[in-house]
Amino acid sequence: MTRSMKGIIGALTLGLAAACSLAAISSASAEELSLKGKRIGVSAIGTDHYWDLMAFKGIQDRVKELGGEVIALDAGRKDQQQIAQLQTLIAQTPDAIIEQLGNLEVLNPWLQKIRDAGIPLFTVDTATPHAINNTTSNNYNIGAEIALQMVADMGGKGNVLVFNGFYSVPVCKIRYDQLKYVLTSFPDVKIVEPELRDVIPNTVQSAYSNVTDMLTKAPEKGSIGAVWACWDVPQIGATQAVEAAGRNEVKTYGIDGSPEVIKMVMDPKSSAGAVAAQQPYEIGKTSVDNAARYLAGQKVAPFTFVPAVLINKENAAEKGRPFLDAAEKAGVK
């Protein structure tokens, strides 16, 4: 077991090094970028979540900064609306389209149509063969790191409640698959079946009642060790439910780094165990830079990773602060 653990950590370090050098390359070529006279279409499935709003804002701010015109479209979590917006956007023939999140199964045929219409497509956090570049966090890393943190906190054994309602969202798929992969090395950590479903909207309330129900079903202390979700809004509800039930032995894990959750992890008394904090605003900005480079005739890699940080109970005081400051600076609560 120790050997396999070492192997995993070794692989992680390698991956991290690769990610860092990639980031270094992309920042090394930071030259004078411009989008003067260009129209950039931006389509987001929704902006009701901190991450989504920050990335959406990052894209728009950067396009304006570079002198371009933005056509910003927020589908309000409605697939129908996003498809209609993309269809009209294709007819508007912008110089490039940046697409942010959504259901890949729904989107793919329409992303194909964007390329068929000769419009360069860039995506944020959405891995699809149709995009010239996808700018995102290294979700393979994030997924493994948060899973390993959870396993370590659980002492390598126990039961986990897992929210798996968004497997059709590519980043959630990667993080979930990484969790499963990590758990293959720790057979004593078991996912409780059936898995829970996180939902949008009413994510927090629904997670709260799901976790409360499961804790009621397993009343002995220690019968549940952790709660995992591929993002951190269910984590809010889960943490509240654990604390309300007085089951402080249960720790919660999530990904994204909403200010609320970072504050929870920073609070030593809170049951929030760790959160992998991303830089959504930077991710949005970087995708625009990629589009600008491409439009200037430069070569762009198929994906760009923007670094993320694992914030846990030990490092929260030091690592959490910069993220809270960034959120404040962007004016998003």
């Binding site: 979590r77 697939d79 129908q80 498809i83 259901n103 199964e105 045929p109």
Partner: peptide
């Protein structure tokens, strides 16, 4: 018609 447009059935139809 909606399944054809979205290539899938998705939650949230009630929004309409």
């Amino acid at each position: 018609l909606t399944v054809s447009r979205l290539s899938a059935s998705t939650p949230g139809s009630g929004e309409l």
